[in-house]
Write a protein that binds this DNA or RNA. Structure first.
Length: 905
RNA sequence: GGGCGAAUAGCUCAGUUGGUUAGAGCACCUCGUUUACACCGAGGGGGUCAGGGGUUCAAGUCCCUUUUCGCCCACCA
């Protein structure tokens, strides 16, 4: 890595891509290389994440960006801890979604997939895949993610396809996959069955139609429906067996309107007497509940629809009409026949296809199903017994509820793009599950005793079937590869909470089923990114912020840091560009702090720590005796922030860790330490200046490590610019996570804190009295116990508070000057003889007001300390803190009162 | 119908075993071209932590309840 000179402002786009290429070429993303270089301990437990594979034809959006940010943080942190670290990337063929995209594209050319034929169409999709795969992976790399691209997989590649076949055949042979004619959710546009999860219900304004069901013997029964066209498929009218109103009708015959088909009036306790008219039309082929009733009463099941939701011959005169046309027409005809009672407006839930938003039609269809309950039991147990931990914990409840009520999964899709179901049918419909046609033929000839022609099931599997195998299929399963042995089970599964059911739960079930082990130890769920108004970002709303635009404008680090620190685990986050901008500024701030340090290093050597190793080069700290108060303070704060960040990351409080680092670097390091360091750097003796250079560089360097998982690019770029550290094969990305001890310094914390307080107080007074910024003012400090510390740091005080160095008097006990503004901090009284600015009258009022404020505070605490409940029950340190506070207040009050009485004359 | 989450400064959000005077960024006001940074520095204004009740010496934090908003699950025609 070549050093670049540091311009005045950090320009992320200039360095990010080059940096990424370099990291990748160095092999730092690969566990083998980490071990080879001695960066990772081969005996340490590996840290592994399977990346949630994005849709191969999709484009990077903020959902991917947050996933990448969180996972890369975890990967980088663990890599720095010296664990062999593997992040397996890949893409998903995304069955329906991708097929739809390609169909739409063909549609623009006026071509349907049917015209193209299956083979040609799939070829077309593969060429799309080739084109768009490059786009999505390039976009992910633009995020700076450190995944091992040499292990990249695709759900439809040969290895994963064989995993899918293996899984299917195993489940089939165990009876956990079966074929059956049942009620499915049918998307008339996709012309495929979809699973329950792929139906999105929306509250919609609809109509509630009530009409007369004519009885054969005359008279009628009032019945209501939201879908009148289904009347054409009715095979019964049901009433509650105990319903007195309808007792006499049970067993009679009703006539389907218009069609005049005879159907029975039956009694079934599913019917609720006080809902609607208390009578229910039963359409077993087009409603899940009616289907159940139909089974109970052995009713005929009349399918009235074609795959595109137009009506078929069973609909008589309505055949050929679209379902909604038919609805209108039938209702009009019924009105004509005087069967209509009323129409009411009513809100009801309408199911839509997740992928194309078409209204889903429940219908009876022959599909492949996976029996879920036997798989759900161990999956529930794995979370209950803690083998898998879900973060945040509250999602465990969601997980339990779904699995406890799980229903069989419709896994077949009437699509072309996907894993073809590995089932072949013989001439008599006999099924053979096999890895390929040859194997199927072998089974068939054994079965029939002669060779026959087989036909493979035309359907493909739900795209989530292959996703469910992802953590182990990507590592080589069903082959017993070394990767599988070494890196499975994975460590963390990180994703959005919106795919707990689609993906997380299924991976757990499949993982336990096929490997006997939970596929990961922790599930970390992040929230969804929303726009500034809290809406889900979507292309159709036009409110989607494009991560690539944000990266181009502010840099990937700024975006990443915003996503990491913008919220809390599992909670949604509104992302605004102002926050990204603020974080871009943060990167620039660190950049410039570095420029400051480097400018001061010119012409000076920085010795490296004696125990530095090639991948853990650290600066040597000066002897303790040479440290200034500020040096000791910032080292103490560094150790504190190191411990906090480590604790917070380990506790999954990633955002809080980032926010604290921001505070540390900006406020403590830049605003206070660097300003303090200028005293010695500019005016100190050479040994003092050198000591401060060493501390400044040391703290910066160690802070960069802590910040690296949050802002990898700017930190690495800076680090490579620090003298003696970087190099062709040395990098921050593989440096060690700081483990400082022995720098905590309560004395320095207190003393420097006192100086901060004094400086702030003086600055405040200067501002209040409109002292020009450049004017250096005389100061007398009655410093009590702090006299020595302040005397030792008089240059520091002078610089930070803009004092007149020749007119600073510090003593343990100092008489008050005649005319001066009096400032009181704990234990220290400061006099500013602001000639010409002090209005004694106003000064008295100010002092009086301050005394009042103090009295109010003291009163509260004295009340607390006077309360036996508090003194008996509160922990000792809390009581001690309150005592100290009150005595400090009393002291302050004394100082102020004394001053006030001196001015009273 | 069940479940979950949110409600804290004008806006977006932190505040995790209950314990200083509740914080940050943005916005706002005042001042500032000191050789790291105007993508900056210094100072400042601004909050009865949604309402009510309870537990506790102590509640933004725990419990109950109400209201508003959001999400998930669920077969009421």
């Amino acid at each position: 890595m070549t050093n670049i000179t540091m311009p005045k402002a950090y320009n992320p786009t200039e360095v990010e891509e080059e940096l990424y290429t370099w990291w990748e070429q160095q092999g730092f993303f690969r566990p083998e290389q980490q071990i080879e270089l001695g960066l990772a301990d081969p005996k340490a437990e590996s840290f592994v994440i399977s990346m949630p594979p994005p849709n191969v034809t999709g484009a990077l959006h903020l959902g991917h960006a947050i996933t990448s940010s969180v996972e890369d943080l975890l990967i980088r942190y663990n890599r720095m801890l010296g664990r062999p670290t593997l992040w397996v990337p890949g893409t998903d063929h995304a069955g329906i979604a991708t097929q739809n995209v390609v169909e739409r594209m063909l549609d623009k050319q006026g071509i349907t997939r049917q015209q193209l034929g299956r083979a040609r169409f799939i070829e077309e999709v593969w060429s799309w895949k080739a084109e768009y795969h490059g786009r999505i992976t390039a976009q992910q790399k633009r995020m700076g993610i450190s995944s091992d691209w040499s292990r990249e997989r695709f759900t439809l590649d040969e290895g994963l396809s064989s995993a899918v076949r293996e899984a299917f055949i195993t489940l089939y042979n165990e009876g956990l996959i079966y074929r059956g004619k049942r009620m499915v959710n049918w998307c008339p546009r996709c012309q495929s069955a979809i699973s329950d999860l792929e139906v999105e219900y929306e509250e919609e304004n609809g109509k509630f139609y009530t009409f007369r069901y004519p009885l054969k013997d005359g008279g009628y029964l009032e019945v209501s429906t939201t879908r009148p066209e289904t009347i054409l498929g009715d095979t019964a009218v049901a009433v509650h067996p105990d319903d007195a109103r309808y007792q006499h009708l049970i067993g009679k015959t009703a006539l389907v309107p218009i069609l005049n088909r005879e159907i029975p009036v039956i009694a079934d306790s599913y019917v609720e007497m006080d809902f609607g008219t208390g009578a229910l039309k039963v359409t077993p082929a087009h409603d899940p509940n009616d289907y159940e009733i139909g089974l109970r009463h052995q009713l005929p099941m009349i399918n009235i629809m074609n795959g595109d939701a137009s009506l078929n011959a069973n609909a008589g005169p309505y055949a050929g009409f679209d379902r909604f046309e038919a609805r209108k027409k039938l209702w009009a005809d019924m009105r004509e026949a005087e069967l209509v009672v009323r129409e009411e407006e009513r809100m009801h839930q309408v199911g839509h296809c997740q992928r194309c938003h078409t209204i889903v039609e429940p219908l009876l269809s022959e599909q492949w199903w996976e029996k879920m309950q036997p798989l759900a039991e161990p999956a529930l147990e794995a979370v209950r017994n803690g083998s898998i931990q879900i973060v945040p914990e509250r999602f465990e409840k969601t997980y339990y509820q779904w699995l406890e009520n799980i229903r069989d999964w419709c896994i077949s899709r009437q699509l072309w793009w996907g894993h073809r179901i590995p089932i072949w049918y013989g001439p008599d419909g006999q099924t053979f599950a096999a890895r390929n046609e040859q194997e199927a033929l072998q089974q068939a000839s054994a079965h029939y005793g002669e060779s026959v022609v087989l036909e493979q099931d035309p359907d493909v599997l739900d795209t989530w079937f292959s996703s469910g195998l992802w953590p182990f299929s990507t590592l080589g399963w069903p082959e017993q590869t070394t990767d599988l042995a070494q890196y499975y089970p994975t460590t963390v599964l990180e994703t959005g909470y919106d795919i707990i059911f689609f993906w997380v739960a299924r991976m757990i079930m499949m993982g336990l089923k096929f490997t006997g082990q939970a596929p990961f130890k922790t599930v970390y769920l992040h929230g969804l990114v929303r726009d500034e108004l809290g809406r889900k970002m979507s292309k159709s709303l036009g409110n989607a912020l494009d991560p690539l635009d944000l990266i181009a404008e502010y840099g990937s680090d700024a975006l990443r840091f915003s996503l990491l620190t913008g919220g809390t685990p599992g909670n949604d986050m509104k992302l605004s560009t102002t926050r990204v901008e603020a974080n871009r500024n943060f990167a620039n701030k660190i950049w410039n702090a570095t420029r400051f340090v480097l400018m001061n290093l010119e012409g000076h050597q920085l010795p490296l720590a004696a125990d530095s190793k090639p991948y853990d080069m650290r600066y040597q700290l000066p002897e303790p005796a040479q440290l200034s108060l500020a040096d000791r303070w910032i080292l103490s704060r560094l150790e504190n922030i190191q411990n906090e960040v480590t604790r917070l990351i380990n506790g999954w409080q990633l955002g809080e860790a980032g926010r604290q680092l921001y505070e540390f670097l900006w406020n403590e390091y830049c605003d206070w330490y660097i300003e303090a360091a200028k005293v010695r750097l500019n005016d100190g003796r050479p040994t003092e200046a050198q000591a401060t250079r060493q501390v400044a560089a040391f703290v910066l360097e160690q802070s960069l490590r802590l910040l690296h998982p949050f802002m990898p690019c700017v930190t690495e770029t800076i680090w490579q610019n620090l003298p003696s550290l970087g190099g062709d094969n040395r990098a921050l990305i593989v440096s060690r996570w700081p483990q400082l001890t022995g720098h905590a310094d309560a004395g320095a914390d207190d003393a420097f804190g006192r100086i901060q307080e004094i400086v702030r107080t003086i600055r405040n007074a200067r501002s209040e009295y409109n002292v020009e910024a450049a004017r250096r003012i005389a100061t007398q400090i009655n410093a009590g116990d702090y006299a020595q510390v302040l005397q030792d740091n008089v240059a520091l005080l002078t610089r930070l508070a803009q004092l007149d160095g020749n007119a600073v008097v510090i003593a343990p006990d100092l008489p008050a000057p005649e005319k001066a503004v009096t400032l009181v901090t704990s234990g220290v009284t400061i006099y500013l003889p602001l000639a010409g600015l002090v209005d004694l009258d106003a000064e008295r009022k100010r002092l009086q007001k301050e005394i009042e404020t103090i009295d109010k505070q003291a009163q509260r605490i004295e009340g607390l300390l006077g309360n036996p409940g508090f003194t008996n029950k509160a922990p000792a340190d809390v009581i001690e803190r309150e005592r100290a506070k009150v005595s400090e207040l009393q002291e302050k009050r004394g100082q102020l009162a004394e001053r006030l009485s001196a001015l009273a004359v």
